[in-house]
Amino acid sequence: MAASIRVRAVLNGEVAEVQTLIQHPMDTGLVKDAKGEVIPAHYIQQLTFTHKERTVFLADWGTAVSKDPYVKFAFKGAAKGDELKVSWVDNKGATDSLTATIQ
């Protein structure tokens, strides 16, 4: 279900600029629902970007990352048409991944 990840990777000069938006509740475990019951913590812990078998960016996230997280970074050494693999794993062990093409 790669539908949770949206990536835009664009080559700008010698750096590839990568913007990522992920659909995820990022529940902190500190909020109660309408019935007064605590909504259990549910959040992405790690988000990894791999280019040619190499990790180019790794995010460790806690519960303070906003719902539907957004992150932006840039790296060198990529060419147009290269593949960039994005994957995340959350605290419940759920994962998702997507392979984007650098434009």
Binding site: V15, F57, L58, A59, W61, A64, F73, A74, F75, K76
Partner: peptide
Amino acid sequence: ASYHIPEGTV
């Protein structure tokens, strides 16, 4: 949040 910045990443 904590981000690892490998060599080559801005």
